[in-house]
Design a protein around this nucleic acid. Structure first.
Lengths: 228, 228
DNA sequence: TATTGTAGTAAACAATTGAGCACTATATGA
DNA sequence: TCATATAGTGCTCAATTGTTTACTACAATA
């Protein structure tokens, strides 16, 4: 397992496990800190984040006492190195989820250049079905602004899942760059002319075949919407 | 322990147990209230105090999410209650499928009775963001048929995520049973009249206030669509 | 030398969350 | 009819608690 814990992290993980067993609920950051003489909650938090990133801990964000161990932990007590096969079969769901197989970044803002691929703009992460991310390596999520695709069932605030690719075929919904701006549109090629077609009768198709600042970022492979 | 629980108390105890199993930590007063349409935390708290007094629940005072079951619960569980209840609470279902992660069942077909809760109809599973299933314990997915909600961005073939609850508030999108049929509609209550409103101008609102075969299955908390 | 990862402090902030009070309503029995 | 238990609303309050920013320190390493 590549996710090795530091001594400190292992200690803390151990403490959390014990605390939960004793009390039936998880400790707070401050309680953990108190037990390890860590005065700042931030110091504790970074340990927890590390444990989470390495797949040993689930953390409910912004939720009190929402720590729970993954199934990883129990196995960890004996340091036999596990093969790929056992990782795959064992209790692999949690591992897969945390190995960025199905946890993909949400790119919040879309600005100049090719910022979609920049790490700076990441707004968070969302877990999607592993079956999807497996078929679309490198995929990421975008939060939709505007209403140009409502007839295609893509609304403001929706998350769209993008599979990066520089091309598209007729009828596919794509994310494209037009100069500085990134938009979601339906891709349509007629003869030699290429159009980006909004799925909203209020907006006209955009001819792009003559534009040099046009490029395709990727194909929209999914839409996710959460109410509230 | 001979301290008998009221129906309400038993329901709530059950919910807490399920929540903890699914999330690894206990719900808040408000989360419990939300699931039982109890608006005031005080209403919830008194139920919990009763459960505690009767020996079914440990409550950490002034501590967030510090509910844990006593061993009482498991022993007295489900005396001879109906099969619906046990299916619904999903001890068999959720324990295996949910595990510590957010894999929820997809209910394929919707037919007579209350088949949404029957195991037979399960069509597969889908992984959703843990943040969602955490807030909507017992949620499941449905595959949409028909076009009555296209203006709300819900298309044929989409997966909608349902949080089971027998009530709804104005404007929410719900899955409701009308006799043998289950449909997705927007819930609207005007004075004493209740309507199920299709989000498609081709269809008229359906008045249901006088119908005895009407019931609400749950609230639509999310939509997921995958393009081939 | 510069960079990266780990480890920690201090302080401020905002959201979550349990507790409490006053009040209403309904059903059950004595 | 009166008391009691159950069930709920609407509200306020204060404590708990996770998050974030800015800064320091040390060891390993490229």
């Amino acid at each position: 397992m590549k996710n090795k814990l530091t001594d400190r992290q292992a200690e803390i993980l151990n403490f959390i496990q014990g605390y939960i067993e004793q009390n039936g609920y998880a400790p707070t950051l401050r309680e953990i800190g108190k037990n390890f003489a860590i005065a700042s909650t931030f110091g504790v938090k970074r340990h927890l984040d590390a444990l989470s990133k390495k797949g040993y801990l689930n953390i409910g964000s912004n939720i009190s006492r929402a720590l729970s161990l993954t199934n990883c932990k129990e196995q960890e007590d004996f340091p036999a190195k596990s093969s790929i096969t056992s990782v795959k079969t064992g209790n692999s769901l949690s591992e897969e989820l945390y190995n960025s197989f199905s946890q993909i970044p949400i790119v919040g803002r879309v600005a100049a250049g090719m910022p979609i691929l920049a790490i700076e703009n990441i707004d968070g992460n969302v877990v999607i079905d592993p079956a999807i991310s497996k078929n679309n390596p490198g995929c990421f999520a975008l939060k939709v602004k505007g209403d140009s695709m409502i007839n295609a069932g893509i609304f403001e605030g929706d998350l769209i899942i993008i599979s990066p690719q520089p091309y598209a075929t007729n009828g596919e919904i794509v994310v494209a760059l037009l100069g500085d701006e990134a938009t979601v549109k339906r891709f349509e090629k007629r003869d030699d002319d290429i159009y980006l077609i909004p799925e909203n009768s209020s907006y006209p198709p955009i001819p792009v075949h003559h534009r040099e600042d046009f490029s395709i970022v990727g194909k929209v492979v999914g839409v996710i919407r959460w109410y509230n």
